[in-house]
Design a protein around this nucleic acid. Structure first.
Lengths: 351, 351
DNA sequence: ATCACTTGTGGGAGCGCTCCCACAGTACCT
DNA sequence: AGGTACTGTGGGAGCGCTCCCACAAGTGAT
């Protein structure tokens, strides 16, 4: 490990200049070695590297940032005010993917919460100050002004998960449409015919796509869409309960429920139990997210798994590319990269 | 929101100097206003503030960090290599508390993963470079060299959760001992007498303290300690399964199990079910953490809740105090602050 | 020998702040 | 009147880098 303790004058950390003196070269040359420039002779490079090692030199980030006008930091912005967001593995998994991918680089990760208005205010200041080289945006709502702000400030950004179609930023998403389709097709293949759907927050683009997938799967199998089998929810457990109660009242003959999240499914399950319906005998249940809850539910819940860790990785890839590609706005294409990753249906006892 | 677009020369953001010119004062005066120095007349302050607003001035962090030799950033270090860590609410909740408390300050939060060796290497560089003003350390293992490194580099740090007794750093912890006691006392009050304990990783200090609480609760109630009722686990679900199997084999007459985590309890529950034991009629079950799993388990799991959000807050408080108190090492007391927060038993149907 | 490149190197200028010394102005004592 | 103190202010110096221009030395063509 670096850091041998006090050296030079008064315990200060060594500077470029000190390394240069030690190696018997100039400041510029040390800088070139540190930054991997090819225009350095092998002998000089070796001498500098030796000096760096001897002194335990570590570049001063602040000085570098000031001189080079970049920060070597990216921000992960969490615009979610709700607790729910944290309780689910989604966030943690994204973070794992991001962290794994980032550990190969010099970039550091800033975590910024933008739930409250005051936090948003602070975030706007941050961005205006260009305190980061790029931004990762997770879980954006349809009316969120953040993507526009980012585009306007010309800060490289990648948004994850549910996103509006008109977005100007690069994005990484899982295939909500396909995931929903696979869930419904699975239920159909199990002989279910009156399949209900409890939606997520419909102002979240991804929730909308899941509804589309649900509808198309039924249509393609030759079933007329029955709007009475669709009930709006908002991803929460409570909405699962109330939606399920409404559905049971309206369509007591339903034989399957596809919920837009596992927690919603958990709420639905509770109401089904209380109504005396057995799972999966009377009503099959499928969730979305494949969270810990799904595995521990009774019975274990069939659920659509999103490749969240991979999404984190993909986001970083995209963002770093965009940061590296930095060039005059004029030459930038309008087309932003968009990555969509496949989901996987985890079949369990609930269906 | 700040940022009116291009101004001054070539779209650059305004500098202190520009603000000073606009307000008709000197650079130093603007700096004093920005930093809230009291030695500025009201009239001057108002003029500067107007200029700041007009220009949409935001201080350049890098320049400030370079000149003042501080970074206004703290790092949250996650030394956990395991996935488990993320899957549980512990991490997210700490983050919530930290984020909430931090949004009142100018500090930014850096997230650093130190699971792999390469990541640890990078971390050591970070710390050596003093890229942060302080460090938050969560979930440290007994033999971890990080706390020592931090103490040696004299970087303010606060460690959370399970910690070794000999630590030189400030710490915030929940009352593992008391939490375990309350769980066991609860089981005793329900008439259980042969109470088993599946431990957590015993190299984690907190897991050890839970064992102590378990033992003392039994002792104080006049029950001789029965080591055969204690089985080592490591917080995982798998360890819950194997430990439970071992316990059932050794002590088929047990009537209660206190597990060191909810996931472990989930594993135990599975084995109990397969063995035909009813919960809670035959065997009462209590977990630890009060995670989402506890609420969704069948039956819902009684669990010890740690005030994790409050722990996050307390950590920040301690850390900021320590950063503000920065002074020559000589004058520092050896005694570091230590905060212990009470737990709460969430009683549910499993006991 | 001259010119034109190329390669490697040194070091000045400057990034935007904070720190601190100098000093004008005012107030209150002797 | 002179001294002493305090308040408010301006601006030089310097933080540790990167960028880039200048230039020495070498290489090969004319």
């Amino acid at each position: 490990m670096a850091g041998h303790g006090a050296r030079g004058r008064s315990g200060g950390r060594p500077t470029l200049e000190e390394v240069a003196a030690r190696a018997g070269v100039g400041r510029g040359t040390v800088s070139r070695v540190i930054n991997g420039s090819p225009r350095v002779s092998d002998a000089t490079r070796a001498a500098v590297e030796a000096a760096v090692a001897e002194l335990g030199y570590v570049p001063n980030t602040a000085a570098r940032a000031l001189a080079a006008n970049r920060t070597d930091a990216i921000a992960l912005v969490v615009p979610e005010p709700e607790t729910r967001f944290f309780a689910e593995p989604y966030f943690s998994d994204i973070l794992r993917g991001v962290g794994a991918e980032l550990s190969d680089t010099e970039m550091q990760l800033l975590l910024i919460f933008a739930g409250s208005d005051r936090e948003r205010q602070r975030l706007a200041q941050y961005l205006a100050a260009h305190r980061v080289d790029g931004v990762l945006l997770v879980s954006v709502h349809a009316d969120d002004p953040l993507p526009d702000l980012l585009a306007q400030l010309e800060i490289p950004a990648v948004i994850s998960g549910p996103r509006s179609a008109a977005e100007r930023l690069a994005s990484v998403d899982s295939d909500n449409y396909g995931g929903a389709r696979s869930a419904v097709e699975h239920l159909l293949s199990r002989g279910r015919r009156r399949i209900a759907h409890i939606t997520g927050r419909l102002d979240v683009y991804g929730a909308q796509r899941r509804v589309d997938g649900y509808r198309d799967a039924l249509l393609d199998a030759g079933h007329a869409p029955d709007e009475g089998l669709i009930e709006a929810g908002d991803f929460t457990e409570e909405s699962g309960r109330s939606a399920m109660a409404a559905l049971l009242e309206r369509r007591p003959d339903l034989d399957a429920v596809f919920a837009a999240s596992d927690v919603t499914a958990a709420g639905a399950r509770q109401v089904l139990r209380e109504a005396g319906r057995r799972i999966p005998e009377d009503v099959a249940l499928v969730g979305y997210d494949d969270s810990a809850i799904a595995r521990h539910m009774e019975p274990p819940l069939t659920s659509v798994r999103q490749p969240i860790v991979e999404m984190g990785r993909a986001m970083i890839d995209l963002l770093l590319t965009e940061i590296a590609d930095r060039r005059p706005a004029a030459s930038r294409g309008l087309e932003r990269q968009q990555v969509v990753l496949a989901t996987q249906l985890m079949e369990r006892a609930s269906s």
